[in-house]
Design a protein around this nucleic acid. Sequence first.
DNA 1: ACGAACTTTCAGGAATTTCTGAAAATTAGG
DNA 2: CCTAATTTTCAGAAATTCCTGAAAGTTCGT
Lengths: 197, 197
Amino acid sequence: MNLPPLTQAFVLHFGEMGSRWGISRTVGQIYALLFLAEQPLNADDITEKLGFSRSNVSMGLKELSSWRLVKLQHKPGDRREYFSTPEDIWEIVRILAEERRKREIDPTLSMLRQALVETPATEDERHAQARMAEMHGLIELVTRWSEDIQKLETQTLIQLLEVGSKVQKVFEIKDRLKVVAGGKSRRRAKSEGPADV
Amino acid sequence: MNLPPLTQAFVLHFGEMGSRWGISRTVGQIYALLFLAEQPLNADDITEKLGFSRSNVSMGLKELSSWRLVKLQHKPGDRREYFSTPEDIWEIVRILAEERRKREIDPTLSMLRQALVETPATEDERHAQARMAEMHGLIELVTRWSEDIQKLETQTLIQLLEVGSKVQKVFEIKDRLKVVAGGKSRRRAKSEGPADV
DNA sequence: ACGAACTTTCAGGAATTTCTGAAAATTAGG
DNA sequence: CCTAATTTTCAGAAATTCCTGAAAGTTCGT
């Protein structure tokens, strides 16, 4: 490996992190390197800097492309392919969220939906189905929220994250106003117990 | 494997999903089984239902305990240990988020902080460091938001997720009011370009 | 349509992770 | 303390995943 120290620490760290996720150490390192690079890199640059085989780099880039995590571009007068990551780091988060939804959430939801239309044969299966219904509701809720949030511009999203749960206050005030005004006040759910999601 | 069909589909699915994440197929299956079970199960129950070795179940339960994903309890007059998952599925999400933060986010943040106090030797390293600063900012923002949100009661959290990005409207209205009133209107950041996170 | 430059594929070896059975350790009750 | 029930550990077998070199494939300029 042939990298300046700061870069090297980062690359190694994301290699390890990668292998905790579904991706291999190599793929993690390639991505980390591209993320830090000011200029797009070609496969030979990567091979040279990270010190594994050319074919491994090729496979890694292919996997990263399938995740839409790298952009491919060409330089005039150079036949080689150059790779880079999106400039806007929030864009990266968006892409990751979308791809994970496609690969993990959607299949899970469809498995759950399938299970929910079956008729449970025993008391055990009845309970299992109820549990799956809870999980289905949770996933749907979170997924909808996240799709919704993804549409926001980066700046708006940041604003929203910054206020965090303080938004809660707004609801409290809103509800109080409605009550005072004597309008159809929406009952605030307060009960504990299992969520009826 | 010795399970009713609905349960089996779910267990197999989470086995596969588990192996896409950092956990092994077996651990995923054990957790899925416990999640669906109405009553706490002991290690022999699990061995019998899933059909792998007793020692593997023991290791799996140990790993799940280290993630705080299973609760251990005892039945009177029975020496064996019984395992279950939290009733409230949102509690599970909270625990998962906390543990992942501890294992993945915190080490990453400390690596990044370390890198950010170094003095870059070259232009490349300067750029790499700037990229790391961006990532650091993003992670901090998201982590703070998520810690903040985790403190809410389950019901309030669900409410918040349900409104999703519609909250944005509240800000727009608030800002407009301030402008109309001629008060110190907080400038709404609108610029594109790299986020100064 | 040929050859050079570059990229991809893929069989199989290397490395890592997962799983098992046997043995050791722990614990509760007598 | 001893014993039997139960859980844990761990060395190595089995399975899986990762990586490489060699060969095949693609593409562009001439």
